[in-house]
Amino acid sequence: MDNFDVSVIVPVYNCEEYIGTTLDSIINQDFKNFEVIVIDDGSTDRSLEIINEKLSKSLISHQIIHQENSGVSSARNAGISKATGKYLVFIDGDDYVTGNHLSELYNGKSDFSLVQFIKKDGDRLSTPYHFSREFMSCEDFIKKELNMEMPFTFCQLMYKTSIIKDNGIKFNPDLVYGEDIDFALRALIYGDEVTISNEATYYYLQHPQSAINTSEFRRFEVIEIFEGIADFYKSKGRDDLANLVITSRIPKAIFGNMNYFFYNGYDFDRVLNKMKELDLLTKLSRYEGDSKFKSKIRLFLLSPKIYYKTWKKLKNSID
């Protein structure tokens, strides 16, 4: 069996428009000792044909797994089970990376390492976040994420394979939205340190078919996911982190998704009724933290309709 430093896991479902670019970006890495594991999740377009064509012509060690359509979580789990590298990297089949992605991530020592990402929406590019330090404890990293003090997506991280496999960490196949942050926040609790690079090497494509754009009110399901993470942290004796989930991450997720629906033209009554159905107003009221954000929540809870009307007038100035 080859001893690879890194296993790159690429789930694919009907990505014929993007997967060629994705694989080219992986094949052309300046890092050499890695394998690529592509999981075709029952694509009905030309994705599998393109995958076979690209990888058969490359010198990169690779595995191609074909399965019946079971969802991205199942596909990633299949990739993890086949991975032989010391570290795991995840790249979605409609994203791409720069040629130094793996070399920026890999040092062979840290439990986790991080690069920055750029959201690409047509010709529009987001500004990557900049960290002021090169290392951070996993605990501090978790707290920073739970306080939403930084933009974060799970694909920024390189994960030590032994942490993932020894602790049985998997993506939850029942989740449509938020399975990635669930995976990352559970994995990070087992590590000591995150090595940080400020190089932006991951390009995260936004398009109408993205799960984040097609999940309707299922975006609110992330609240239940975070409640599960809080229970998980409690089971590990980390009541402090569990409390941070309840008093910071959940209220911010509720408020952020609510404003997402408003911004995208969803009917006010539909959004509010869904929030009441899920008891999100109570969960929103538990916020503890920044006084400015707390004031926004209080204004909304005092009169959701007035908040909404004010938001419509001033939406460019209200986060």
Rank of each mutant, 00 (worst) to 15 (best):
H207M: 05
I254C: 02
D319N: 12
D41F: 01
K109N: 11
L244N: 06
I65W: 01
N33Y: 11
G237N: 00
D24T: 15
L278P: 13
A230T: 08
L314N: 08
N3Q: 12
L302V: 14
N100P: 01
K32P: 07
V176T: 13
S74G: 06
G79S: 02
Q63V: 15
K294W: 09
A184P: 02
S74R: 06
S235D: 03
R46L: 08
T98K: 08
V36A: 09
M275H: 05
N147H: 10
S235W: 01
T98L: 15
S110C: 10
N147K: 06
N172S: 03
I181K: 02
D5V: 09
W311I: 00
E227S: 11
M1W: 14
K57G: 02
F4K: 15
F261M: 03
A242I: 06
R186Y: 00
Y96P: 02
S248Y: 04
L272W: 14
F300I: 05
T161Y: 13
Y233G: 05
F220Y: 05
D94F: 01
G191R: 10
S132K: 08
I50H: 00
A75H: 00
T21F: 11
P11I: 00
G79D: 01
Q209V: 04
H130Y: 14
P11S: 04
T247N: 14
Y13Q: 13
N107H: 06
H101Y: 15
S215M: 09
D24W: 12
L301W: 10
L55V: 01
T195I: 09
A200L: 11
P128Y: 06
F293P: 07
V8Y: 04
I60Q: 13
D319E: 09
V222M: 08
I189M: 04
F262C: 08
F220L: 10
I142Y: 00
S43Q: 02
S47E: 00
I60Y: 08
T247L: 10
I306P: 10
D166S: 13
L205S: 05
I27V: 12
G191H: 08
Y266A: 14
R76T: 00
N257R: 03
F4Q: 11
P251R: 01
V6H: 04
K120H: 10
D41V: 01
I26P: 06
S126Y: 00
I60V: 15
S215K: 04
F117Q: 01
D94M: 03
I65Q: 01
L280A: 03
M1I: 14
H207T: 05
V8H: 09
V72P: 13
D94L: 00
N69C: 09
F34A: 12
G20D: 14
F90A: 09
D240K: 02
F31T: 10
Y202H: 02
L105D: 00
Q116K: 12
A200W: 11
F154N: 11
T214L: 13
D2V: 15
F171Y: 03
